[in-house]
Design a protein around this nucleic acid. Structure first.
Lengths: 168, 168
DNA sequence: CTGGTTGCAAACAATTTGCAACCCA
DNA sequence: TGGGTTGCAAATTGTTTGCAACCAG
């Protein structure tokens, strides 16, 4: 497990659109225009997108905002996308590779909102220990890192805030 | 560092109301009725509360909902409370002991929303490694654990959902 | 064909803001 | 007394839902 850089098989061209739509069909769902547009958009994105960002990047008329909401919900239920929370109360969605659970973490710049994908997870043992000590089962976790990226370190501090807009 | 049970000096009677209001004064803020009511409420709570929960538990007329929003913001800016996100998009607030940063994690039951406070943090070294490899500075993180608590394990599964209402 | 989907608008919910009255310092 | 605070209401913003028209299978 590496703890830096872009992941190997995730994001970008790693998901042919055809494979994604096939997953929809297999799940008894229809392959519609809006869904293809959304999947194609996520497919070409390296990092998680908010629903508003997805809507904004769609060509006007491609899909209604309400449909983006409904689609993300369906895709999440089917395990095709996974939702991440960067602590600002806005859900962000990322494609999950076929057959995987998509679990990984991010390093987010609190100045410019740049996102670094961190491969793998390093908390398996800790998680097990915590589950045991507290008698919990089916344990999981959410973990994200925040900091100032190299670029922003050389810049005069703008409006230091938790991650939010920047990419919109 | 322990990884279980209720923390030693946090929560509950650990914060005399007088100490809290003193912190307000020191921060050039006024000690008002609503603020005292909110602080007293947080003081007696073992776990983080949402703004709506705070409002609901106040005696009617003690404070307006808009004031709860404004107060939590002031208290957060002053470092008197810290916000936690349990992944459901709802901010939860917990008092921070004088002079501390309040950093710790939670173990949340996804069935009944019970919260276990986990003392201390075990990611210092990992955090440093990640910062170094990616050239980030002022790094921090958010980490929460989820699972099924002992009680809910013996119960017929209700509406398994991410943590949300339950305590409202 | 036909039921899952979508667009559109209305309904809800959560959070913010304007402003005059109020009250702590 | 004066400026930070508050209550109340209206304005925003984010998310969900009802329903008739539509279209993928």
């Amino acid at each position: 497990m590496s703890t830096h850089g872009h992941p190997a098989g995730r994001a970008a061209s790693g998901h042919p659109l055809a494979e994604l739509t096939a997953r929809l069909r297999r799940g008894e769902r229809k392959v519609t225009g809006p869904r293809q547009a959304i999947l194609d958009l996520l497919r070409r994105s390296q990092h998680p997108l908010t629903r508003k960002q997805v809507f904004a990047r769609l060509r006007a008329g491609d899909c209604d905002l309400a449909t983006v909401y409904r689609s993300m919900q369906v895709l999440e239920e089917m395990g095709i996308v996974k939702r991440y929370d960067f602590g600002d109360g806005v859900g962000r969605f990322e494609l999950v590779a076929e057959g995987e659970d998509g679990h990984h973490h991010h390093l987010i710049c609190t100045r410019c909102s740049q996102v670094v994908e961190l491969d793998g997870c390093f908390l398996a043992d800790l998680e097990g220990r915590i589950a045991e000590r507290n008698g919990f089962r089916d344990i999981s976790h959410r973990l994200e890192f925040f900091g100032i990226c190299p670029t922003c370190q050389t810049t005069v501090a703008p409006a230091a805030r938790p991650p939010a807009s920047a990419g919109d």
